[in-house]
Computed example of a mutant assay.
Amino acid sequence: MKIARRAGHKRMAWKNGQGLTEEVAAFPAGSDVDSFDWRLSIAHVEADGPFSVFAGVDRTIALLDGAGLALDLPERLPESLQGARTVELTQGGAPFAFSGDWTISSRNLGGPTIDLNIMTRRGRCIHEMRRLTLAPGETLTAPGAGWVVFNSPATIEADGQELAIERFDAIALDAGESFSNRNTEAKILLVTISPAA
């Protein structure tokens, strides 16, 4: 288990220069936006505008903070999304998976927003993101290798050690590793990453 404290997240401008990202982790180490196999980041969306296009990349995002974020989708979509020209991300809502090849614009629904973003290079890695709430005393066991990003402060116990977690801190877990939540309800996003078949 490894902890990535928010204070240590690398901050950088978006690929299109229209926002700020806190990079939680990326692989391989030292890779940039053109060379990563996967990248986990927290995006600060200050204004309406286009998303960066990431050809050959699969993405999933979930809202962490703010009133809501509307995504205006391209006209040509997979059958499962036909008719859904706009998707709204809300606090507590399900993460949204989409292709980085798509041309998408976003609109803040009542002020700036912050979202969690996992990107995996198609053909190299696949991912899944789930939003969970852990009750006091509840234990999470990682179903696969990946990350847990906290959307609330928490106190956890792992390997017999108690740790204070701040909002937007993250922990890396291998498959089967676990931690227990203590004291108060913990809001988390669980991201699993695995090699492509």
Rank of each mutant, 00 (worst) to 15 (best):
residue 8 G to Y: 05
residue 105 S to I: 03
residue 125 C to G: 00
residue 187 K to S: 05
residue 120 T to V: 12
residue 58 D to F: 12
residue 119 M to F: 06
residue 31 S to T: 02
residue 69 L to P: 09
residue 112 P to S: 15
residue 34 D to T: 12
residue 6 R to L: 05
residue 11 R to D: 06
residue 156 I to T: 01
residue 93 G to R: 07
residue 50 P to W: 15
residue 85 R to P: 02
residue 2 K to P: 00
residue 190 L to Q: 05
residue 87 V to C: 02
residue 181 N to M: 05
residue 166 E to K: 13
residue 109 L to Y: 08
residue 71 L to T: 13
residue 53 V to W: 05
residue 176 G to F: 04
residue 126 I to W: 02
residue 70 A to C: 12
residue 28 P to S: 07
residue 101 D to A: 14
residue 13 A to N: 07
residue 100 G to N: 03
residue 119 M to T: 08
residue 125 C to K: 11
residue 138 E to L: 00
residue 118 I to C: 01
residue 82 Q to L: 11
residue 47 A to C: 12
residue 167 R to N: 11
residue 193 I to N: 03
residue 172 A to H: 12
residue 10 K to Y: 03
residue 22 E to Q: 10
residue 23 E to C: 11
residue 155 T to L: 10
residue 143 P to I: 04
residue 151 N to L: 08
residue 47 A to Q: 15
residue 8 G to T: 03
residue 172 A to Q: 14
residue 191 V to Y: 00
residue 103 T to G: 09
residue 166 E to C: 14
residue 37 D to S: 03
residue 111 G to A: 06
residue 116 L to Y: 07
residue 103 T to N: 11
residue 113 T to I: 14
residue 1 M to Y: 07
residue 95 P to A: 02
residue 96 F to S: 07
residue 22 E to C: 10
residue 116 L to C: 08
residue 88 E to R: 13
residue 159 D to W: 00
residue 158 A to V: 07
residue 27 F to I: 09
residue 71 L to H: 15
residue 113 T to R: 08
residue 179 F to K: 03
residue 1 M to W: 06
residue 33 V to P: 13
residue 125 C to Q: 09
residue 35 S to I: 07
residue 196 A to C: 07
residue 137 G to K: 04
residue 101 D to V: 01
residue 171 I to V: 05
residue 2 K to D: 03
residue 133 T to E: 08
residue 161 Q to P: 04
residue 50 P to R: 12
residue 106 S to M: 11
residue 178 S to Q: 08
residue 161 Q to E: 13
residue 165 I to A: 01
residue 84 A to W: 09
residue 29 A to S: 13
residue 23 E to Q: 12
residue 181 N to Y: 06
residue 168 F to H: 13
residue 143 P to C: 01
residue 75 E to S: 13
residue 166 E to F: 07
residue 130 R to F: 02
residue 59 R to W: 04
residue 127 H to M: 04
residue 70 A to S: 15
residue 105 S to C: 09
residue 100 G to P: 11
residue 166 E to T: 14
residue 163 L to V: 02
residue 30 G to L: 07
residue 39 R to C: 09
residue 175 A to I: 06
residue 27 F to D: 15
residue 118 I to E: 01
residue 107 R to P: 14
residue 132 L to P: 04
residue 177 E to T: 02
residue 14 W to S: 06
residue 173 L to K: 00
residue 112 P to F: 12
residue 20 L to G: 06
residue 95 P to K: 09
residue 2 K to G: 00
residue 16 N to C: 00
residue 156 I to F: 08
residue 82 Q to E: 10
residue 77 L to A: 12
residue 149 V to P: 04
residue 163 L to R: 00
residue 189 L to P: 01
residue 157 E to Y: 02
residue 194 S to M: 07
residue 83 G to H: 05
residue 114 I to P: 07
residue 79 E to W: 12
residue 55 A to M: 14
residue 177 E to S: 04
